[in-house]
């Protein structure tokens, strides 16, 4: 059974149809990328899974449970965590306060403390900066904080929206490395990226979304050599 499954999901914003039938699956332990151009529907796909956007038709399920109509807090509670585009960290709050938000639904304070310690181990720069305000961090650090915050919620699966956005190539590589470490520690990852080359280096499989539907699906190694992908998303 797939961990996350989209079955022919359609979403409208008013009269505009954003998703025209997305079908995809993510298996436990995988890193799967969603590739595609601006406005293809990648972000809407993630928002539909996390309950921020309601689908018009189709079915979304997570670990066998139907979450098509679930509210965001229930989805978070089920262990599916969405790291939104643009990081969305709280700039006037400290790094630690930002991390604590991740543990908002976790009643057990000792568990939150333990998870913060684990995140500090994975991302020591956050430990170093724990009393600094989020807004004083650099772009790369803010992305790490956004990921760290999501990890405090204890995700079974992490959905990352454009973690490479606005970052220098070396930082992008570092972010991808962290993502692959997170997977190695047992968290499934669904990654939305425009930077197809960087994404395909760490992912197992990928879907291409175009015009609100999934058009191409395949193993990352195959897609890196696929002429359609090379022409459209990787450049010459």
């Amino acid at each position: 059974m797939a961990m996350l499954e989209f079955d022919n999901v359609a979403v409208y914003y008013g009269k505009v149809q954003a998703l025209r039938g997305i079908s995809l699956t993510v298996e436990e332990g995988e890193i799967v990328a969603l590739l595609g151009n601006n406005g293809a529907g990648k972000t809407t796909t993630l928002s539909t899974a996390s309950g921020l956007v309601k689908s018009h038709s189709g079915r979304v399920s997570f670990n066998g449970t139907d979450i098509t109509k679930a509210m965001p807090w229930n989805v978070v509670g089920a262990g599916l965590i969405h790291v939104p585009e643009g990081r969305r960290i709280f700039s006037t709050m400290t790094v630690l306060e930002n991390l604590l938000l991740g543990g908002y639904l976790v009643k057990d304070r000792a568990l939150v403390a333990k998870r913060i310690a684990t995140v500090y181990e994975l991302l020591p720069l956050l430990a170093e900066r724990s009393t600094q305000q989020g807004g004083t961090l650099s772009g790369g650090e803010q992305q790490m904080l956004a990921i760290g915050r999501a990890l405090i919620a204890g995700p079974k699966m992490l959905m990352l929206d454009e973690p490479s956005m606005g970052l220098a190539p070396l930082i992008v590589a570092r972010v991808m490395q962290v993502i692959s470490e997170i997977r190695d520690q047992g968290t499934t990852v669904l990654l939305v990226e425009q930077n197809a080359r960087a994404a395909l280096k760490v992912t197992d499989r990928a879907y291409v979304i175009d015009g609100g539907t999934t058009t191409i699906e395949g193993r990352a190694v195959d897609l890196l050599g696929d002429s359609r992908i090379i022409d459209a998303y990787l450049g010459a």
Binding site: L52, P84, F90, T92, M93, L101, A150
Partner: peptide
């Protein structure tokens, strides 16, 4: 500070 981000984190 950010209603959408708060909601995405389960508030």
């Amino acid at each position: 500070e950010d209603e959408d981000a708060a909601e995405a984190m389960g508030i």
